[in-house]
């Protein structure tokens, strides 16, 4: 009996010690990891709270491992015959009090950390190099469709207005007062991030976000804000709404929607 209980005591003492050391190392590691993550831009603006951990892990993992990957593009034959425009807020209601001239002469106002802030017309934007891509829109609800999206890469436009090297986010807002969002520079400068003004060989229909929609190809549909009329280039998301980077976290959704 004695040897065995002595043996047990020794084991439990050793186990207690190793458990303590492991716990301390784990806590220290977590603190260091979160400092490093902050420093290298791996923390989403809405990372706080117990449910922010999952989003932070997803965002950090994808930024570390797949920062420059391209969204899938499809052959022309796979373009959906029945694209679906979710009526988040019926466009007719939204545009009821909007003068027709606003729609006809759409303008995009750029402010923040840019060399040439100001208001750019849709034709100014269309004069820049454009890109056409056949990609899928996936909604958080579960449905998806494929369409051809034609637009000016945001990167081209940002180069035109001259962004500061200290810029970390691009905030973009809709004519719809309850819809604005932001992306980090990895997505802002991504070649498939388009200031979209065309769809399936024609103008972008109002139901799909026309005259101007931001398409973020590697994230869920709700990041692709419709009726974009304002851009702000910034190094901090504090002061925009509740400082969570997007209106979506204020409704319970995550800022990062690459999942």
């Amino acid at each position: 009996m004695t040897p065995s209980s002595d043996h047990l005591a020794r084991i439990s003492r050793r186990r207690l010690l190793t458990t303590g050391v492991a716990a301390a190392a784990g806590l220290g590691g977590l603190t260091v990891a979160s400092r490093l993550a902050q420093r290298y831009g791996l923390m989403p603006p809405d990372h706080r709270g117990i449910l922010g951990v999952g989003e932070t892990l997803t965002y950090a993992a994808q930024r570390l491992l797949a920062n420059h990957s391209l969204a899938r593009e499809f052959p022309r034959g796979m373009i959906s015959k029945t694209p679906y425009a979710n009526r988040v807020k019926p466009a007719a209601k939204l545009f009821k009090n909007t003068p027709a001239s606003v729609l006809a002469d759409w303008q995009l106002t750029v402010t923040g950390m840019v060399a040439h802030p100001g208001t750019y017309s849709l034709s100014d934007i269309k004069r820049l190099p454009f890109r056409s891509q056949i990609t899928e829109v996936a909604c958080e609800e579960g449905w998806s469709f494929i369409a051809e999206w034609i637009g000016t890469p945001l990167a081209e436009f940002l180069q035109e207005v001259g962004i500061s090297p200290r810029a970390r986010y691009v905030v973009y807002a809709s004519l719809d007062p309850d819809w604005w969002d932001s992306v980090d520079m990895a997505d802002a400068l991504h070649p498939q991030t388009l200031l979209t003004w065309g769809m399936n060989d024609g103008d972008l229909p109002v139901a799909f976000g026309g005259p101007l929609r931001m398409r973020i190809s590697r994230q869920l549909g709700y990041k692709s804000v419709k009726y974009v009329d304002r851009l702000v280039v910034t190094d901090t998301l504090k002061g925009f709404g509740k400082g969570l980077g997007s209106v979506q976290p204020e409704h319970g959704y995550t800022w990062y929607a690459g999942i």
Binding site: I50, L51, V53, G54, E55, L57, T58, N86, R87, E140, E141, Q248, H251, G252, Y253, T254, I259
Partner: peptide, 28 residues
């Protein structure tokens, strides 16, 4: 969601954002 046709005459309360956060956190 209102727009989804179902055989039921009511729409459930929408907690999709929270469900999604919980889902991915639990998945991790």
């Amino acid at each position: 969601r209102k727009l989804v046709p179902t055989r039921y005459g009511f729409v459930l309360p929408d907690y999709n954002g929270g469900f999604r956060k919980l889902h991915f956190e639990a998945a991790w």
